[in-house]
């Protein structure tokens, strides 16, 4: 097992390098030069040239890439000009908030999604199946940002059950209860689409597994139906559900961008959108690379979980 984890970690290195190359290459597509973008169109040519030299932009692209990469490996992601602070500090501050939001949503969508899928498959064409199928269809069809807005309108404005926005109250204590109060609506809004996708896939994975010969064997042994569904079928279905959970983690991270905008959540997604609109390239680069790297790490966890579940994967 240890060697498998090590192997997965080693194989992540080229992926991480690839990510930096892709991000750098995309950013290199930017028309015009960033110095003009930073200084505005009224800057003097001298100032532009000086800034270009300061940023190392007068060097060839390949050299610039390696300087950027080398600095990043030392923890220097550059400096955000719009916020006037180191990129890494800002990203780390913001990423914590995103992690709380996306992590909660991910747990919600995994648990509810898988449970709904299993129940739906076990009661195929029954009332529960039809109800779940309908709710799931609604869930995957509604834009999460629209859902968030409607939730604010109903639960925050009309019913006043939850605060409409933010992660913490402006005044007052910062304890877990307060956090949960603020977290519930955005986390739910974010989880809805992913839950729908997980539930759909779990249902079809379960239906596929329930047709297998070893399920018939379990029944021929006299295993009660509950054991057939939850012990035999779900275990086997998890083999195809877990990779989808890995993909859904990426979707939840992505959806967080919208939800953070709607709920004014101080996360990394909102930071990125602001940075793009202000053309703060270093902040965009740094934020994208950092989040993508975390996602790569999460996928290693998924793979390890998969190999623990399925002995046929050689460790």
């Amino acid at each position: 097992m240890g060697s498998y984890i090590l192997k997965r970690l080693v194989s992540a290195i080229p992926v991480l390098l690839g990510i930096t190359v892709i991000v750098f290459a995309i950013m290199a597509l930017i028309p015009g030069d960033p110095a003009t973008a930073i200084l505005g169109s009224y800057a003097t040519p001298e100032n532009v040239e000086k800034l270009n030299r300061d940023l190392g932009l007068d060097k060839p692209a390949v050299q610039r890439y390696f300087i950027w990469l080398f600095n990043m490996m030392q923890g220097d992601f550059g400096r955000s000009f719009s916020l006037n602070r180191p990129v890494l500090d800002e990203v780390l501050d913001r990423f914590g908030a995103t992690l709380v939001l996306a992590g909660t949503s991910f747990v919600l969508c995994s648990l509810i999604g898988v449970a709904a899928g299993v129940v739906s498959a076990a009661r195929q064409y029954g009332f529960a199946d039809k109800a779940i199928t309908f709710v799931v269809l609604l869930g995957i069809s509604i834009p999460s940002f629209f859902l968030g807005m409607m939730m604010i309108l109903i639960f925050a404005v009309q019913l006043r059950w939850f605060p409409a926005s933010g992660m913490w109250p402006i005044y007052g204590d910062r304890n877990l209860l307060v956090l949960l109060d603020h977290l519930l609506m955005p986390a739910l809004a974010l989880a809805v689409v992913a839950t729908g996708v997980v539930a759909r896939l779990s249902r079809s994975a379960m239906l596929e597994v329930l047709r297998q010969d070893y399920i018939r064997t379990a029944r021929a042994k006299g295993v009660p139906e509950r054991g057939v569904i939850w012990r035999h079928a779900l275990r086997a279905a998890m083999v195809s559900i877990i990779p989808v959970l890995g993909i859904q983690a990426g979707f939840v991270l992505s959806g967080a961008v919208y939800i953070e905008m709607v709920f004014q959540w101080p996360g990394v997604g909102r930071m990125l959108v602001d940075a793009i609109l202000k053309r703060d390239i270093l902040l965009v680069q740094g934020g994208v690379v950092f989040v993508a790297a975390c996602y790569v790490g999460f996928n290693i966890v998924v793979d390890v979980a998969q190999s623990l579940l399925d002995p046929r994967i050689k460790t």
Binding site: V15, I26, G250, L253, S254, L272, I281, Y295
Partner: peptide, 14 residues
């Protein structure tokens, strides 16, 4: 390996 929106954001940023 990218959460898809990061890639989309990067492309739009560029």
């Amino acid at each position: 390996a990218f959460p898809y929106i990061l890639l989309a954001l990067a492309i739009v940023a560029a």
